[in-house]
Amino acid sequence: MFLRQVWTVAAKDLHSELRTKEAWNASIAFSVVILLLFAFAFDPSSEQIREFGSGLLWMTYAFAGALVLNRSFARELQNDCLDALIASPVSSAALFVGKALANFTMLFAVELFSLPVFGLFYNTWPPRFAPLFLVMVLGTWALTIIGTLFSALTVNLRLRELMLPTLVYPMMIPVLIAAMTITTNVLAGNPMGFGMRFLVAFDIIFTLLAVVFVDTVLVG
């Protein structure tokens, strides 16, 4: 039952987004433009790119993610749909996980789209793609969980588009540092290191905390 509810909510969000492409278009355009602008602004050597390339990549993902996450609960305000969802027998945990899954899918698709742009314009390709995808999955889930929870928390605020990044980015700093460090190692062909265990632990702890507290956040 829980999984069916999760799937129904996630499918609804993805279906709505595919039809309107509001968050998708903005996020893709933003990430590609940022990567292109920096590629033309600098003419870095391959050694320099290895040092700051992963930072640039994850900053792009974090900012592009805010565009996706901002819409997550805000789209439910239209016609008071959020009230209908909360009043329905869907558990708050299922609602949250469903929305997080939809956000993860959208953000990961944006990342996959912008990754070749990064590789092409910065002439940087990892020796092996599997470790890079692993860190992208874990890092993106961490960004998504924090972002989705704070999207629920700020949904009824008048200045939610300002408040969400203000609240979310400080929380994302540990994740971004870990993800950047691992990505730097992966691009250099080195072992992933301790950051991987940190990301796994962060994902598990914050997913559990979010699932436990989301009903309080939504119903008050």
Binding site: S16, N79, D80, C81, A84, A87
Partner: peptide
């Protein structure tokens, strides 16, 4: 429970 509130609670894009 069924609820009919002030908003129509429908998704415009569906």
């Amino acid at each position: 429970i069924g609820v009919l509130g002030h908003g129509i609670a429908l998704y415009d894009e569906l």
